[in-house]
Amino acid sequence: MQQLTHLERLEAESIHIMREVVAEAQKPVMLYSIGKDSAVMLHLARKAFYPSPPPFPLLHVDTTWKFQEMYRLRDKMAAESGMELIVYQNPEAKARGINPFDHGPLHTDMWKTEGLKQALDLHGFDAAFGGARRDEEKSRAKERIFSFRTASHGWDPKNQRPELWNLYNARKAKGESIRVFPISNWTELDIWQYIMKEEIEIVPLYMAAERPTVERDGMLLMVDDDRFRLEPGETPQMRSVRFRTLGCYPLTGAVESTASTLPEVVQEMLLTTTSERQGRVIDKDGGDASMEKKKQEGYF
């Protein structure tokens, strides 16, 4: 008798999900956001299909405002995995110069929400893997692993298909698509432990280092390139910081930390007293049910 550990069971479940999608969908794609969850998801895909490379491309819906270190790792991982990398930037957002400084919520809406819809429509992908986890946020706790979207990418939380055992119904009408969340049942700690166990490469920003930062509205923002607009009186200061989640650099808050190794990061995480998404601005606009509202509109 061999007792499987929780990580072994989670890994087996995620791999099973990915193989079901590849067997049943016409044109799957993996949404790759370069964060630690994406890194784990990509690693699981490589395990699921080894010795073949994962039989689908990686799609990065880019906002042009990610951290430079993210772009570097993205290109490296795509090359290493032998997968095609598709980078999509919403041309309208590009033309209108949409940016996080001037446009607030519109920045996320146009680059990410609209950009994602456009990219999926453009390539005709009918199934997209996403790295969302149920422990991240309340409305995610109830989402299925296979989540159906209408032709206009809407999500109807009241009309979800029941998901029994590990039997997934991937059938859909023309024009409809599925978002699939293979790491739904992983927690933040599971992700970290798996990264350590499997020695998965992640963006160095997760580890503490001296970085140029300014403090604004109670958040520490990193000045990652010269597009950062300093307000009167602001001067970047070197602080030892790290990031718990990664997004667009002007919207992602850093935490002051000296945790420069993975175990130290996990140690800090376990002893910390604030939740993971707190560093992101996105959950806060629109009040209480904002993520749910975003999802109904088509945000991943």
Binding site: K142, T187, A289, E292
Partner: peptide, 29 residues
């Protein structure tokens, strides 16, 4: 635990929600 906006208004849980916690010996879903 009650996640979706609609159920908050009704004051009841209407769907299946998954939660996670761990003790020294086990992880639970």
């Amino acid at each position: 635990v009650d996640g979706l906006a609609a159920e908050r208004e009704q004051g009841i849980t209407i769907d299946v929600a998954y939660r996670f916690f761990a003790t020294e010996k086990r992880k639970f879903i």
